[in-house]
Design a binder for these strands. Structure first.
Lengths: 121, 121, 121, 121
DNA sequence: GTGGTCTAGACCACG
DNA sequence: GTGGTCTAGACCACC
């Protein structure tokens, strides 16, 4: 994920990127997260944009900011699991709703999804 | 659908609304679509916003503009089916990709979707 | 030419259609041209639109309107040849200008045109 | 090109102007394009009109929009060359077709074009 | 600062 | 009547 999708705020993509790394175990609870500056220079984005992403993560309780020390992934694993499930839920609801509105039946939707998952393997 | 989602362009929602009506058979191939002005006064949006939606639909070949007469749904049913499938495909790919990145397995994704579809029945 | 190009006024396309038929010899000098009504019902366009085309042709001296009798192609062949050459000239100037602005050289333009003419044979 | 042709949409002329500059090398791949507002105040047109031109260019993949930063000419030179060739092709096809319909032969068309190019030198 | 969107109101060509 | 275009001015999110 070196590039960003133009239709979505970059700060949001950064926040989701970190959440994804956390739920996949690439960052462990309590781990230090690169500082906004490091992250910004690495991903070639404006530091302000990263700061905003971190603020959002802190607000959700996923990241703990220790001033002068850096940002740390929360040790509260429930929070992580919650955030993961919520994001998944939101994604699925939107997807299911959109497909329903396109006139697809439950069976068809499941079939299309299976095909898609197969292709992406 | 009398109101609009605030975090999506209105013109895009109008275009999708018409596409959805078309694929669901509420508008038939060759049917006349309400003029931009009618549509605008009915949905209480600015005519220009509707015009933009219609232009997008024309660019995709879903709507045929007959100058001075009005806008007509294309009689090319392949186009309609294509547009439907493409939109469904795009939705599914995004959904599957997002869930994969959250670390869900194929089985789990299918299960979550089934639950969701069940709930929405 | 049963259908019309949407980017150009229909009345203009009708006028050009008649001019083209005349210069190609499908209509001869002095021949009667179908009345606006006949033409309109044949091509499925609004009679007013045909009328406007005929007015333009009359203004250019290509068509003579004899009230109550019908419209006749002028017997003045010079007029026809003039109109033909002018239209050709206008077309070429625009084409050459556009290609020049795209940075093509004289040689390249001639070559591209030759290829195109070959294809259309 | 300080003024605009009255019988063509301004937004279209702006888009073509930029494309032409790009294919002629006056703007290089990756270069920043003046912001819509700059361009608008410079050419004395409404910013919205410029925005529309830029959006068309983005849709064709010639311009990349970086939000909050500005518009950049694509670094994908294939796209540029494609766009150039397509526009040239479209122009030529239309020209050749029109002349053919006026009853000119291949030889005559080539000759007329050569004369025209000579004149414009 | 940038681009994205929307509203309001106007004018035109076309049918 | 229709759609196409343009202007003017506003608000927003983003960087």
């Amino acid at each position: 994920m070196t590039d960003f999708d133009t239709n979505k705020p970059i700060y949001q993509q950064i926040a989701e990127d970190i959440l994804k790394k956390a739920v996949r175990g690439e960052i462990l609870p309590g781990d230090r997260i690169p500082s906004a500056r490091e992250y910004a220079s690495q991903k070639l984005v404006n530091p302000n944009t990263v700061v905003r992403a971190f603020q959002d993560l802190e607000r959700e309780g996923l990241v703990v900011v220790k001033r002068g020390l850096g940002n740390y992934l929360t040790t509260d694993t429930t929070r992580l699991e919650d955030a993961r499930f919520q994001l998944a839920q939101k994604t699925l609801i939107q997807c299911a709703k959109d497909l329903r509105e396109l006139g697809y039946t439950t069976k068809q939707i499941q079939q299309l999804l299976s095909q898609q998952l197969e292709v992406m393997k």
